[in-house]
C-alpha cells in the first residue's frame, strides 16, 4: 500500500497559523481589547494581558465585568469558528492565504450569551478556553471558562448559542 508522505511541519504550521490569524486579526475589537490566541494543534487558549483600561472597579481594583464577558464571548466565537472551519482549512477547501487577504467565509452569529461571575477578576493576565458542546446545521452551543492563577479556580464561565450561516449551495 502506497503511504502518503506527511506534509512538512512548517507547511502545516503556516497554514493553521495563517487561518487563525485571519479569524482573530481581522476583528478590530479583539485587537482593541488585546486578546491573543495560543494554539497547540487544534486546541486554542485565549490570553488577555492585563492593562489599566480593563479596570472596572478602581478601588479593589478589579477587571470590568464587561471585559470578562467580552473576553469569554471572543473566546467562544473564535473557538467555534476555528472548530467549524478546521476540516476545510486542513483539506484545503478553504485557502488560508485567501482568508488572510480578507476572503472570509460567512461566520456564525451570536444569538445569546450568559455569563456567571464566580470571583472578582484580579489586575493580572487572564486565560480562557471554550468548548463546542454541539455544532448543528443551524445552531451551535458553546461553553467557556476563564481563569487567572489557577486553572481549577475559574473566575467566570459562560454559555452561548450561535446561529450558523445558511449553506445556500446545499
Amino acid at each position: 500500500m502506497a503511504r502518503q508522505t506527511p506534509e512538512p511541519v512548517q507547511v502545516v504550521k503556516q497554514r493553521r497559523d495563517a487561518a487563525l490569524s485571519a479569524l482573530v486579526h481581522g476583528v478590530p475589537y479583539i485587537a482593541w481589547l488585546g486578546v491573543q490566541f495560543d494554539r497547540r494543534g487544534d486546541e486554542l487558549t485565549a490570553v488577555l494581558p492585563f492593562h489599566e483600561e480593563l479596570i472596572g472597579n478602581p478601588f479593589l481594583p478589579a477587571i470590568h465585568g464587561g471585559v470578562t464577558s467580552a473576553f469569554l464571548e471572543v473566546t467562544a466565537m473564535i473557538t467555534l469558528n476555528w472548530t467549524w472551519l478546521w476540516s476545510d482549512i486542513e483539506s484545503g477547501a478553504l485557502d488560508a492565504e485567501s482568508m488572510v487577504q480578507g476572503q472570509m467565509p460567512r461566520l456564525p452569529k451570536t444569538i445569546d450569551f450568559t455569563v456567571d461571575y464566580l470571583r472578582s477578576g484580579l489586575p493580572r493576565d487572564a486565560y480562557a478556553r471554550a468548548f463546542v458542546t454541539r455544532s448543528g446545521r443551524r445552531y451551535a452551543s458553546v461553553r467557556a471558562e476563564a481563569w487567572q492563577d489557577n486553572r481549577d479556580k475559574p473566575f467566570a464561565q459562560a454559555t452561548a448559542h450561535f446561529l450558523m450561516p445558511r449553506n445556500d449551495t446545499a
Binding site: 475589537y29 470590568h64 464587561g66 464577558s69 464571548e73 471572543v74 451570536t110 450569551f113
Partner: peptide
C-alpha cells in the same frame, strides 16, 4: 467607534462591547 467593530465587512459593533455597555 471603528475600534469596536466586530465584523469588518459590515462595520457592525462587536457583541462584547454591547455586553460591557449592558453590564455597566
Amino acid at each position: 467607534d471603528d475600534r469596536f467593530i466586530g465584523d469588518p465587512e459590515t462595520g457592525v459593533i462587536h457583541g462584547g462591547a454591547v455586553s460591557a455597555l449592558m453590564d455597566t
